[in-house]
């Protein structure tokens, strides 16, 4: 890490969020520093996925403040939030969430195409990430033809193709075997560290959590413990 005073890439203050009568988050505060890898853990239903969606600007919390890459998300309209996410944030969800009608290559190129990059340049960058994730053989396949692990690898390639400042990953190895999960984490955490990006990982898997610099453990919508692991 560089600099003496670091501006957090993610800052959450007093986050409150509920789904109907279920309270998911109760006054959660969290800061993620540049180049930091943070694991958010806790039992099922503790609010960890909601926390990730709030921090990534996908879900607007009912209370509290979210600052992502120095921007107060409450002050941005939907278009501005989307643009911020597309340009500077990578997101990996549990089942890949690829666009079913596009080839794997076009799925990975999509964030660049939506930003107006030249089609050929976007596809070249996507192909390079697919090669790095060991997915170059599947570049012309459709998402339906992929295994769970392949979908996750493609999703990681798509999350990294824009060179994001922060990557949010929700159970990124959830549908993978141990060795496949290990390779995916090597890639995700390795690429992030190499580029100085931060990573926020939601996981119920201790082996995944152990890859982080810090563990934030939730229980019943509140942070139970925060521990530095490195």
């Amino acid at each position: 890490m560089t600099g003496t005073v670091e501006t957090p890439v993610v800052e959450l203050h007093g986050i409150e969020h509920s789904y109907r009568r279920t309270v998911a988050l109760r006054g959660v505060a969290l800061r993620v520093l540049p180049e930091e890898v943070v694991a958010v853990t806790g039992p099922s239903g503790c609010g960890k996925s909601t926390l990730l969606h709030v921090a990534a600007g996908i879900v607007r919390p009912q209370g509290g403040l979210v600052r992502l890459l120095g921007q107060d998300l409450d002050r941005l309209d939907e278009t501005e939030r989307t643009r911020l996410r597309r340009r500077r944030v990578g997101i990996v969800l549990q089942f890949g969430q690829l666009v079913p009608d596009l080839s794997v290559l076009d799925n990975v190129a999509l964030p660049l195409l939506l930003e107006g990059h030249d089609r050929q340049a976007a596809r070249t960058a996507a192909a390079s990430w697919l090669e790095r994730t060991g997915m170059d053989d599947a570049r012309d396949a459709t998402p339906a033809e992929l295994s769970g692990g392949q979908s996750q690898r493609a999703a990681v390639a798509r999350a990294l193709v824009t060179g994001p400042a922060v990557v949010f990953a929700d159970e990124p190895t959830g549908s993978m075997d141990t060795l496949g999960g290990e390779l995916l984490l090597d890639l995700l955490v390795g690429a992030a560290r190499e580029r100085g990006a931060s990573v926020v990982l939601v996981t119920h898997d201790n082996v995944v959590a152990a890859r982080a610099d810090r563990e934030v453990r939730l229980r019943d919508g509140v942070i139970e413990t925060e521990s530095v692991l490195r």
């Binding site: 290990e182 390779l183 090597d186 390795g190 201790n206 082996v207 959590a209 152990a210 890859r211 982080a212 563990e215 413990t225 521990s227 692991l229 490195r230």
Partner: peptide
């Protein structure tokens, strides 16, 4: 239990931080 959990996680991090 919390302290032991942290000791275990830290040890696991050392062991898994070997790179490809």
């Amino acid at each position: 239990l919390q302290g032991q959990r942290l000791a275990h996680l830290r040890r696991m991090r050392e062991l898994t931080d070997v790179g490809p």
